[in-house]
Amino acid sequence: MNLDISLAPNILFNIGSFPVSNTLLWSWLVFAFLMVGAIIFKYSLKMRPGKFQNIAEMLIGGSYDFAESLMGSKKKTDRAFPLVFTMFFFILFANLLTFIPGQSAVTIQTAGGVVPLFRAIISDYSLVFVMTMISVIVTQIVAIASVGPLRYVGKFFNFTSPLNFFLGLMDLVGEVAKVMSLSFRLFGNIFAGEVLGAVMLFLFPFFLPLPFAFLGLLTAVVQPFVFAVLTLVFISMATTTNEEATA
């Protein structure tokens, strides 16, 4: 068996001493596409929406209403929604890109051998880790801003009783574990989908990979949703602890 599965992305070329991997190249392309698309879309908005604008408005409006039902108030939603929806849309777009037929067959000759030019962007752990760190750090900043720095620290180091001290430490562990669980969930699902597809394709190339491709499509849509919603819930939890404590 010569299945080629690697956790780390393949290096395509170097700029100076900076290695450019296939996931990095594609994430740049996706960034550029989304940014240019957003700018063009912004200037082509009309009062009487066309077909495309209608769909976009429905998608964004529906997501906004859903976010508002989770967050509770409109003010909080206005602050959190841009970040969360951008994350959702970027991951969704990056995942759906892997379903373009034939892209995995494109390979390129490099110093390290023949490597595929395309690789699912989310199956690169570095990118997922960075996005998770953004989400977790934003959550902590929101918590500090709404509770105040002293009470924020006091939540973790509580000396009123041994039990409270222990629970505070457990809270601290829980905050660190958030980084792991949030990032591994997204990365693990997408990477496992890729590996599963590759293995099935290797075992029997006709028809057998089809149901697994459907499963992958479901994962590709559900996982960005879960990532965004969990970020939203974390932010919402960080703001509501304040109200509960003062009430």
Binding site: L7, R185, A192
Partner: peptide, 25 residues
């Protein structure tokens, strides 16, 4: 309202399985 919440709950339930997968990898 139930279906999105179910997906989120399932994703959280799934995380231990994902840990096992990461360990295996």
């Amino acid at each position: 309202t139930i279906a999105p919440l179910m997906f989120v709950a399932m994703a959280i339930t799934e995380s231990t399985g994902i840990y096992a997968l990461v360990v295996a990898l």
